[in-house]
Design a protein around this nucleic acid. Structure first.
Length: 592
RNA sequence: GGACUCGUAGCUCAAUUGGAUAGAGCAUCUGACUACGGAUCAGAAGGUUUGGGGUUCGAAUCCCUACGAGUCCGCCA
């Protein structure tokens, strides 16, 4: 049993025997730096029931703990705060325990399977910075859930059809001149993105012309020849016209080839990919079901609605008057499909917060339809990524392209590394891999360290910073520890879980304390779907280690037991940094 | 018009979910011994947590209000 649990139980029995009112769910917090101790118990809440002043309660519990347990070495009370110090021997034992558990941090299996849908791109343009936040979050949360004891199914729903896809197709037909990714040397997704932009530009120009001829803007938007053409193309696609379908397949394949390259680069993969072209007709049977159950109602024009005003929402259309489905109809069908395809208990969508309302409605409908899985649905809603210049707008060309950005990061990593000249012995391939590792570490960490729910600012200058609260800082700490461990090995010092009790300095206690918190952090991150907790944890750990490294000698420590402890502590920190960063999808080098 | 989210050091973010004198990084300034990796460390400075009111032992956190920023409310996806 870990220290924290033992301490909580001891406090429960202390309050039980002292005040006859055992506190069941003891809440402990880490002691603030300026006070002595590592765990703090707040006694204010007990003043009412015990009718004693907070300081007296703290003193009483402190004394009880010191006398009745073997692991509380000291305590102090400041106002209503009982600060507890733990015996050094317990910390050494704790480190022994951590070292002997190869799976340290991995929580017991929950026997529950969770599906996570993320990435879900449109096949009409390349990925941008916003997609990267989505992909990194989705990828990281699946890793965290796995570490948290869940089985996970990663899925991606590709938006591969619809009017917006036809826009690039039409532009390609009109202006493409038979270009291909090979003939232009462009990545397929970028090539198609170019045509999407072309369409938009030409369409706007047509509107302008029509307006000049005296048409209202609203009408011009609907009557522009290009729009009529693209609508015609969508009709043909839906009717299965062979030429249209062939063009669609060819262009989409180019995009997929481009996406796969990017996915490979960012280290993201899926267990199952759904294509909207295969799922967009789903959900209509659910409309029938809902009408029969009285959950939906039909209006005079034939359209079908649901009234969600009781849930604080609006009336919502679920089927058009012409009998075709809308976005939410598809999602109803697709959600059913997911639960048919996989034996899952929960399903999570990683989707931006502009769709909060959509998901509220979706979940409310499924609850009313009585779906047994309805309580297990969750929208992992994340905030938008802003630029110093303001919002990213694809229409206005102010988006940051994912591939361009990664290339810049790679160049920065290479330049910085060469400047420092620490890896001159690396072979070409090895060096290239390191640049990639550092670039992705910087980028992923930058996007994951912020609470997913909050909108964030992407400052290009800060993102290529490799110092301070950054991925490369943590990677550096790991590489530095590895260097120490290599030397330790040469000296015949091994990291082994058979450490003898030694007196510890504060920073050493602090580090073991942090390490011992790791499993709990994973549990919290999994519960809140928050990779940022682990990003924060890895940083705290790296920072503490660097402080330790600066204050104390490791290899030149004269006391052999202490020397061995410090080597082992270093080993455990390196291992835990590596694991925590892995949960963010970030690799850590052994040399950099 | 209606619903929701957010506002913390010059900048970017934390704050264990209501706990102590609100913490980190960047930027600025000062310092680090022939020592295990200086992409590091130690220190200084920086705050009326947007303003105002309330709830209580205790509020950045909960409630009300004003101001400011954003998102959604399509027979679009």
């Amino acid at each position: 049993m870990d220290i924290q649990t033992r301490l909580k139980e001891a406090i429960t029995s202390a309050t039980g025997s002292l005040f006859d009112q055992p506190v069941e769910n003891v809440a402990l917090q880490p002691t603030k730096k300026e006070f002595k101790g590592l765990y703090t118990f707040v006694t204010f809440p007990l003043t009412k029931t015990t009718r004693k002043p907070p300081v007296e309660i703290g003193q009483a519990i402190g004394n009880y703990l010191k006398e009745n347990t073997a692991f509380v070495s000291d305590f102090n009370v400041v106002q209503g705060f009982l600060n507890i110090s733990i015996d050094d021997g317990v910390w050494v034992d704790s480190l022994n325990g951590i070292l002997s558990d190869a799976d340290f941090g991995r929580l017991p299996a929950k026997g529950q399977t969770v599906m996570v849908e993320f990435s879900s791109p449109n096949t009409n343009k390349p990925l941008h910075l916003g997609h990267l936040r989505n992909n990194f979050l989705g990828d990281s949360i699946t890793r965290i859930l796995k570490a948290g004891g869940y089985d996970v199914v990663k899925t991606c729903l590709v938006n591969d059809r619809g009017i917006h896809i036809c826009k690039s197709m039409l532009a390609y037909e009109e202006f493409g001149n038979g270009e291909t990714p090979e003939s232009t040397g462009m990545k397929g997704d970028h090539l198609i993105g170019k045509y999407y932009v072309w369409f938009d530009r030409a369409y706007k120009q047509q509107i302008e012309e029509l307006v000049e001829e005296g048409m209202s803007e609203e009408e011009a938007e609907k009557k522009a020849p290009l729009l009529l053409k693209v609508q015609e193309m969508l009709r043909k696609w839906e009717q299965g016209d062979p030429d249209t379908v062939a063009l669609w397949k060819k262009l989409n394949q180019w995009v997929y080839d481009g996406f796969n390259e990017t996915y490979h680069r960012i280290g993201v993969s899926f267990d199952r990919t759904y294509y909207e072209s295969e799922t967009y007709l789903l959900g209509k049977d659910i409309i029938e079901e809902g009408l029969e159950k009285g959950v939906f109602f039909r209006k005079e024009d034939g359209s079908v609605w649901i009234d969600l005003t009781d849930d604080g929402l609006d009336q919502k259309l679920v089927l058009r008057s012409d009998g075709t489905s809308v976005y939410i109809t598809q999602d109803l069908g697709t959600t059913d499909l997911k639960f048919r395809d996989f034996a899952i208990e929960r399903s999570i969508w990683v989707v931006g917060n502009e769709q909060n309302y959509h998901f509220e409605v979706l979940f409310a409908i499924l609850r009313r339809l009585g779906r047994p899985y309805a309580e297990g649905l969750y929208h992992l809603s994340y905030g938008m990524v802003d630029l110093p210049s303001g919002k990213m707008k694809s229409r206005e060309g102010t988006v940051v392209d994912a591939d361009d950005l990664m290339e810049e990061m790679r160049e920065t990593a290479e330049a910085r590394t060469r400047e420092l000249g620490k890896i001159d012995d690396f072979a070409g391939e090895e060096a290239r891999h390191l640049y990639h590792t550092l670039a992705m570490g910087a980028l992923k960490y930058f996007l994951l360290k912020v609470d997913p729910k909050k909108r964030m600012l992407f400052n290009p200058q800060e993102s290529i910073d490799f110092q301070g609260h950054t991925g490369p800082f943590i990677q550096y700490t790991h590489a530095r520890i590895c260097s120490v461990l290599r030397k330790a090995e040469q000296m015949g010092l091994e990291v082994r879980p058979s450490l003898k009790p030694v007196e510890l300095s504060e920073i050493e206690q602090q580090i073991v304390f942090l390490l011992s918190q790791y499993p709990q952090r994973i549990a919290e991150a999994a519960a809140d779907f928050a990779p940022s907790y682990l990003a924060q944890f890895a940083f705290e750990l790296a920072k503490a280690y660097n402080q330790f490294y600066g204050e104390l000698s490791i290899l030149s420590e004269s006391n052999p037991d202490r020397q061995l402890f410090r080597v082992a502590l270093s080993g455990a920190v390196a291992e835990t940094i590596c694991k925590a960063m892995e949960l963010l999808g970030i690799e850590v080098p052994t040399k950099m």
